[in-house]
């Protein structure tokens, strides 16, 4: 439980040099990358499915989702599992840096100019912590807004789909 009024805990992670964070209450667990099974003809930002204790969990590549340059995953890559409305969903990130407590007054609304690389709808706020700038992302918004985009190469487009 948080004690200071308005302070929250966040799971901070990196995509390239940028730092992002999810509200910890939305994070179910964090895994080192394991085998992810590719699902052909799925939207490009979907990396595939993984075996989470016997359940098939969809893994979304946040880099691709945010249209950043693709990168193979490595030792430090992590999958952050978030509880979406219908099922748990994994987010593939470059590295999880830490769990940080951020007082509410360190978090600012999104200034227009920051939302350059990623679409601003997902951004819940920008936190300034010492010399770090952390973009707080609402993972559920990311899912919600991932409703219609490119079907992958290979014949048919897959049409639109429920996003959660």
């Amino acid at each position: 439980m948080t004690h200071e009024k308005g302070a929250g805990q966040y799971v901070a992670f990196k995509l390239g040099l940028e730092e992002f964070a999810f509200d910890i209450s939305m994070v179910r667990e964090i895994f080192p990358t394991q085998e992810i099974t590719k699902v052909h003809r799925s939207p490009t930002h979907i990396e595939g499915v993984m075996n989470l204790r016997g359940k098939l969990v969809t893994v979304i590549d946040l880099r691709k989702r945010f249209k950043l340059k693709a990168k193979d995953f490595d030792e430090s890559s992590r999958i952050i599992v978030v509880e979406a409305s219908d099922a748990p969903v994994g987010f593939l990130v470059d590295e999880v840096t830490e769990v940080v407590r951020m007082p509410a007054d360190s978090i600012e609304a999104v200034p227009e100019y920051v939302a350059q690389e990623i679409e601003s709808e997902y951004v819940a706020g920008i936190a300034k912590l010492d010399d770090r700038l952390i973009t707080i992302i609402d993972p559920l918004k990311v899912l919600e807004l991932s409703t219609d985009d490119e079907g992958q190469k290979g014949g048919m487009s897959y049409g639109d789909r429920a996003g959660g």
Partner: peptide
């Protein structure tokens, strides 16, 4: 096993 909503409509795959 079923796939979640995000993959349910992918053609050619019904589950795993």
């Amino acid at each position: 096993k079923s796939l979640d909503n995000r993959l349910r409509r992918v053609r050619g795959i019904s589950g795993g």
